[in-house]
């Protein structure tokens, strides 16, 4: 339709290729999903991801408004831009889903995750672990003569970096909450 002078929209990809990671670059997006706090709502969200073959990289959920029966699911997902758009549309049509926000697209957001790290060791390694923990501003929440449990809050990459450093120093157990995120400003 050259006369109309608008860009053609036909995708060059087959439906079977839409999720091919080689076809387009995968992006990581943080989504905030406000849901009615009713039984099974988390199963609906997770079932959507498994049923349609989408990725969940991290997921946290908790009630945020007790009187309003509202919970907030924060999830990190990855996919091509077309898949991310489809994920948002599919989430939006789940009946008890009230709002879907793509924090990655909608502007700057703060993202925080909490991790608990159990590091076991003696002597120099133990001293080094404590020294690195101070650099990262991690708190010691439990201590025995042969172990520490550190609590660290930060971005997922900060937690990754801390875990890497602790591994040779005796990291034995690690628990992470997944990302909680809010848009910046009002």
């Amino acid at each position: 339709m050259n006369a109309l002078n608008i860009q053609k929209g036909a995708s060059s990809h087959s439906a079977y290729d839409l999720r091919d990671p080689n076809a387009q670059v995968e992006e990581s997006h943080t989504l905030a999903v406000l849901v009615e706090n009713e039984p099974g709502v988390l199963a609906r969200v997770i079932g959507l991801f498994s049923g349609r073959g989408y990725n969940i990289d991290s997921l946290t959920v908790a009630e945020v408004d007790h009187t309003g029966h509202q919970s907030r699911i924060t999830m990190v997902t990855s996919g091509t831009p077309a898949v991310i758009e489809q994920i948002k549309a599919q989430l939006g049509r789940i009946v008890p889903v009230h709002e879907v926000h793509d924090l990655t697209v909608e502007g700057p957001a703060v993202e925080r995750e909490l991790g608990l790290f159990k590091v076991c060791g003696q002597g120099d390694k133990r001293v080094e672990a404590l020294r690195i923990a101070e650099i990262f501003r991690a708190n010691v929440v439990d201590s025995t003569l042969e172990s520490f449990v550190f609590e660290l809050v930060g971005t997922p990459s900060k937690l990754d970096a801390f875990a890497e450093l602790m591994r040779p120093l005796g990291l034995s157990d690690l628990a992470r909450t997944g990302v909680a995120a809010l848009a910046r400003g009002i």
Partner: peptide, 20 residues
């Protein structure tokens, strides 16, 4: 073709075919 798509379900839009 230029494609228009009228649908009540937002997830039907651009699911398979990109529309203008």
């Amino acid at each position: 073709s230029v494609k228009a798509h009228i649908d009540i379900d937002p997830s039907s839009i651009n699911k398979v075919i990109h529309v203008d």
